[in-house]
Design a protein around this nucleic acid. Structure first.
Length: 855
DNA sequence: GTATTCACG
DNA sequence: ACGTACGTGAATACG
């Protein structure tokens, strides 16, 4: 018989601080349960035990980390969250069929000791898995300790048997107690002998064998006088430490090992818990199925699958039904392999041919319910037709329900919303089979959140507009980009040579580490501020170093030019399509605020702030006619004025004042005429900060005044804009109460951070609570505008097409003769998209290139 | 894979 | 006592 005993508390601690979730989406916490189960699985597979016991302390776990990193510096959570995870983990382990052992008044270590002793008595082997070294004293010929650690977020194991302990400590396992009694252990509050550390303790124990024997031989001349004095002074402490450090082996717990043989547990409950925790990768490893209990029993086996080489006969049935619920099976290259309709408990697998697709797409009598509609819109566009009557997209619905999820795969959603899963071999059949249930569950949830308007009038129509923008693309002058890139390359090389010459040796300027060495060691410049794996070399730091050495200027210039060359010139050239245009992807379910994001390439971060960067925009052009670029003016501040119903701010916007100058006049208590450009720009920074949830320190950094002064600005701001002050307090309070924030359209974001005990994380939650309703509403407003613009361009029979959105900016490409009409149309639709208590203002400009069209 | 830096709103 | 504004994506270095 082989017994595996886990030290639950210490492993959970290790797991929480060490094992990282696979997801990289910012804001994810390290999940202790995930880490624990990962470690557990690894140990289990390596040891193949017959019996398993998992020991926990009765009291809440304690933590040895003195400091917990905040939200920004890394994304780990903090112990309070871990304490909340503990009961969940224990129940999960029980459901998995393992026995949890706790004992009032006894520590987990004592349980390890008692069970290993029981195993030894029975002549069984025992493996102890733990994260700390206290249990090494339990090692024997029958008992080994597997010490868990983490490296790069992955679990690592070191196996300790008698030989390994001798090799590492030079003592027997039992002598580990004597060792600890001498050297102490601050984390366990074991004093030891003051002044004796690991080295001294090791020598003494090796020579005399035990603590007792050391004190019996205190007169031995080989003991140095200093050591003797220390030993004498701490004699009581030493023997007390011995008692404290000895793990007890007589805890009143079940010692019949057969009682620890795993049972079948409650796999359905375990499965549904793991789904709830989003531990999808582990479900398989533990041999569970994703679907929760009752559904698996309800699921009446697999639906029938009917292959339809020609889908035409199905169309009439779908038209009769008035709706189609289906799943699109795409291959990796983006080819549509099949459409699988879930209709009347049958899966109809249709091989798509263009006649069928055309008839299906354009039939307005068939309402489409599917998952991820945008690629299908694009397919329709590429066929020259339009996909009509989309009424539900499960990915978009799930995004509205929780924009913070890491992904929106059909099967994951099915598990989350408790839709029964048939176990087809082919994944696409499973996906199609869950669609009707998933649609129903999501519709219900959307209605429950009052998000139907948002889904049906914003997100679903928008997906078509985004597909259109992707399909049309943005023309670029690739030859000119190439030339510009070569010019930049020359400058990069000459800057490189000059920098290397001034520093005095060759190094990689792109490496922050090597650059730090060059600046702070070789050149002896003051290593500014921030660290973490070295000194920071970011632009802020370099800026402050600029007056001290001319090479810093060239490094800054090098960074700028190298960035333009690699990210923009090289990066853009790589993604130009055969039609000479760039077809970016717009992701509609990525951001937590409701904005869209752009990838491959990111068209929303093309340089504009510096003259040299802005040059690039000369290569983004209208292929034939012109570009019309329309911008919202101060959209976020206008939204704030409206939602906070702030009289002063509303007045400023209603009167058409320059908002930053007006803010300056209020905050600095001066007449408008006396506001200098410096004061205006400070007020602008304050306005910015308010939208982000401001802190005096950051504001002071931003505008270069003292923290005290910045704090005074904020106070004065809130005094003048009392509506904003009240709103900011109210929104955070309501978020704490409900656990989420909402914008004026019902777009929602959950904020678990607000419950955190970590100041930084909680503060982050509060700032997000203040910012999201503003950023989210602004995102919704421009989404509404996009839909209206797109519809009007079509209704008015214009050739003009929207090709890009950059958060508060829309770009349309059109023939020269449509220019004025399009400018008016854009301005009008953007301004009329919503009716707030302050006017919305948009301005449009036209030009041959993006550079020219941007005012 | 993670960290750093920097581009945008 | 602590770190320091919201939301993104891409390139690069490095273990």
């Amino acid at each position: 018989m082989k017994l595996l005993v886990l030290d639950g508390n210490s492993l959970l601690n290790r797991a929480f601080f060490g094992i990282k979730l696979l997801s990289t989406k910012s804001g994810d916490f390290t999940n202790g349960i995930y880490g624990f189960l990962t470690m557990f699985r690894k140990i289990y597979d390596e040891t193949e035990p017959d019996a398993v016991a998992i020991a926990f302390d009765m009291r809440a776990p304690t933590f040895r980390h003195k400091q917990y990193a905040g939200y920004k510096s890394n994304r780990k959570g903090m112990p309070e969250e871990l304490a909340q995870q503990l009961p969940v983990l224990q129940q999960l382990l029980k459901d998995l069929g393992y026995r949890i052992v706790t004992c009032e008044g006894w520590e987990a270590d004592d349980i390890l000791g008692t069970l290993s002793a029981a195993a030894e008595r029975e002549g069984s082997a025992c493996v102890i898995a733990t994260g700390d070294r206290d249990s090494l004293q339990l090692v024997s010929s029958a008992t080994t300790v597997r010490l868990m650690s983490t490296k790069f977020g992955q679990p690592q194991v070191t196996v300790y048997d008698e030989a390994k302990i001798m090799e590492e400590y030079g003592v027997t396992p039992h002598q580990m107690i004597d060792l600890k009694a001498l050297q102490g252990d601050s984390s366990d509050c074991i004093p030891g002998v003051a002044g004796i550390g690991p080295k001294g303790a090791g020598e003494l124990v090796q020579k005399y064998g035990s603590l007792e024997n050391i004190y019996n031989n205190l007169d031995d001349p080989e003991i140095k006088p200093a050591a003797r004095r220390k030993l004498e002074a701490s004699k009581d402490n030493a023997f007390m430490s011995y008692e404290l450090g000895t793990i007890r082996r007589d805890a009143p717990i079940e010692t019949d090992l057969s009682q620890y043989v795993p049972t079948s547990g409650d796999p359905q409950s375990a499965g549904s818990t793991m789904v709830r925790l989003e531990l999808f990768s582990l479900i398989e490893k533990f041999g569970l199925t994703a679907a929760p209990a009752q559904e698996t029993t309800v699921a009446a086996g697999r639906p029938e699958v009917i292959e339809l080489p020609d889908g035409a006969p199905l169309l009439a049935r779908l038209e009769d039904a008035g709706a189609a619920c289906f799943y699109c099976h795409w291959d990796k290259s983006g080819e549509l392999l099949s459409l699988i309709f879930a209709h009347k408990d049958i899966l109809w697998r249709v091989t798509p041919d263009s006649a069928f697709l055309l008839a299906f797409f354009t039939n307005p009598l068939i309402k489409k319910h599917t998952h991820d509609i945008k690629p299908l819109h694009r397919l329709a566009l590429s066929m020259g037709c339009k996909l009509e009557s989309v009424s539900l997209d499960t990915a978009l619905a799930a995004y509205l329900l929780n924009p913070s999820a890491t992904g929106y795969d059909v099967l994951r959603l099915a598990a989350e919303y408790s839709v029964p899963l048939p176990d087809f071999e082919q994944e696409e059949y499973n996906c199609a089979a869950v669609m009707p249930g998933l649609c129903q569950a999501l519709q219900k949830a959307i209605d429950g959140n009052n998000q139907r308007e948002l889904l049906e009038n914003i997100e679903i129509p928008l997906s078509f507009v985004l597909a259109q923008m992707e399909h049309i693309g943005f023309y670029v002058d690739s030859e000119s980009i190439k030339e510009y890139g070569e010019k930049l390359q020359k400058e990069v090389e000459s800057l490189h040579d000059s920098i290397i010459e001034q520093v005095g040796y060759d190094f990689n300027i792109n490496s922050p580490k090597q650059l730090g060495e060059a600046l702070f060691e070789k050149l002896g410049l003051p290593h500014g501020k921030k660290t973490k794996s070295g000194w920071s070399t970011n632009a802020d730091v370099l800026e402050s170093l600029r007056p001290m050495n001319p090479v810093v200027d060239e490094i800054l210039r090098y960074r700028t030019v190298a960035k333009l060359k690699s990210t923009y010139c090289d990066g853009l050239l790589k993604v130009i399509g055969p039609d000479g245009r760039i077809h970016s992807s717009f992701n509609q379910t990525e951001t937590r605020t409701g904005r869209i994001s752009s990838t491959e390439p990111n068209m929303q971060n093309i340089p504009v702030r510096t003259p040299i960067g802005r040059e690039l925009r000369k290569f983004f052009a209208a292929e034939h006619g012109v570009l019309v670029d329309a911008d919202y003016s101060q959209i976020e501040l206008r939204v704030l004025a409206h939602v906070a119903n702030d009289p002063a701010m509303r007045e400023d916007f209603l009167q058409g004042h320059d908002i930053h100058a007006s803010t300056a006049a209020r905050v600095f208590n001066m007449p408008q005429e006396l506001i200098t450009s410096q004061l205006r720009s400070r007020a602008k920074a304050v306005n910015f900060g308010i939208v982000y949830g401001i802190g005096a320190y950051s504001l002071s950094q931003d505008i270069g005044v003292s923290v005290k002064e910045a704090d005074a600005y904020i106070k004065e701001y809130l005094r003048n804009y009392s509506g904003v002050d009240a709103y900011m307090k109210e929104v955070a309070d309501s978020a704490r109460e409900t656990g989420y924030v909402e914008d004026m359209f019902g777009r929602r974001r959950y904020l678990p951070e607000l419950k955190s005990s970590n100041f930084n994380m909680r503060s982050f939650g509060e700032r997000v609570a203040r910012n999201m309703p503003i950023q989210g509403a602004a995102a919704d407003i421009i989404k509404i505008a996009m839909i209206r613009v797109s519809r009007r361009l079509e209704a008015e029979g214009l050739k003009a097409r929207m090709i890009l959105q950059v958060h508060d900016e829309l770009i349309v490409e059109c023939p020269q003769q449509e220019q004025e009409q399009v400018k008016a149309l854009l301005t009008e639709e953007m301004e009329q998209a919503v009716n707030l208590s302050v006017p919305m203002v948009a301005e449009a400009n036209a030009g041959k290139t993006w550079y020219d069209a941007k005012g």
